[in-house]
Design a binder for these strands. Structure first.
Lengths: 179, 179
DNA sequence: CAGGACATGTAATTGGTTACATGATTGC
DNA sequence: GCAATCATGTAACCAATTACATGTCCTG
């Protein structure tokens, strides 16, 4: 499972709590990796057993205790080895396309609604992305490597959102001729 | 799980064996839904228990027996109900992007190799898609609804492949300046 | 006579979702 | 006083991967 590796890559930057990690996975990381807080806490516990991470507990007055996790030597080694492996294409799951194929079964109008709903979601995603891009990557030229790769992951989201939007517009147009 | 619904949508067209279904899932369906044969046979068995599908066994001399599955009234009802539900965005998993973020850890060259490898894969995908498009959807104008939606699912794959290719080229270009 | 297509599964393990559970602090 | 944010988990269940298992026919 690469959730372990996704977490390790976040811990590489700075030590974090499970709560912090969860915020990342619900936020900007969400479009290339998703995980629930239950999964995150479980995976942290597993990695602690394997000594891929260390933990220190910070007692805070008038707040719940924090467990702050950091990557260990073994974890860093494991992460490096993983990064060197060739990627194997992971399974796609796009229920929208299955539903689209069911148009003759359920009728054009219902599917048009689903597509339009998705269009709205994609457009809102685009706004989120372009906000992030403008606030974090405004200076277009010669960023340091670490910022440059972050920008590229964002660009990946942006390009795919754009492609999906164009496709949705096309799909809606074509389906509309079959009402 | 929508694997059940993906299978039902294939059985809607015609009765099929587990083997047939597997071929579909390894072939043209693969880019919007993936499943292994183990999963398929298991899911068929589960759906048989629920009476979403029927089965008849065809004994063939000098070949293994076939179990030919067909969708039932209940299955069709279930499929229709499912199609009407709003879609919830499913979790994305893109290990390539995590690895890209690890460039400072492992070095530009290794990651450039991964990106170039992926470029080759995407280009080969594009050829596959455009072959299918030319053989099955050559006549651009006014297809019947069922063919039209099939073409649209293909177009979705084509557009995303194109977007990924452009992004990969861009990513390779930018990373190359950091060697 | 070897390797690929045909044809179907079981078992173990891992990964992921859903439901449940708790408890303090801060701002409206 | 009520909702949101902070902070961490358990348990049950469902989904998916990996390894194992079997046997025939057809083509080169």
């Amino acid at each position: 499972m690469s959730l372990k590796h996704a977490i390790l890559s976040l811990l590489l930057e700075s030590d974090k709590t499970g709560y912090d990690l969860n915020k990342s996975f619900q936020g900007s990381i969400a479009y290339y990796w998703s995980a629930s807080h239950q999964q995150i806490y479980k995976t942290l516990a597993d990695m602690l057993k394997d000594n891929w991470v260390q933990v220190r507990v910070s007692e805070q007055d008038s707040k719940p205790d924090k467990k702050i996790y950091g990557i260990s030597k073994e974890g860093k080694h494991e992460l490096t080895q993983w990064a060197l492996q060739p990627i194997k294409p992971s399974g796609t799951k796009n229920p929208l396309l299955i539903k689209l194929l069911l148009t003759p079964l359920v009728g054009t109008e219902v599917i048009l609604q689903l597509l339009k709903q998705r269009l709205i979601e994609v457009e809102s995603l685009q706004h989120t992305y372009s906000d992030i891009e403008q606030t974090h990557f405004a200076s277009a030229e010669s960023l340091p490597l670490s910022a440059s790769v972050k920008h590229l992951t964002l660009r990946c989201g942006i390009e795919h959102a754009q492609a999906e939007k164009q496709w949705l517009i096309d799909a809606i147009k074509r389906l509309s001729t079959h009402v």
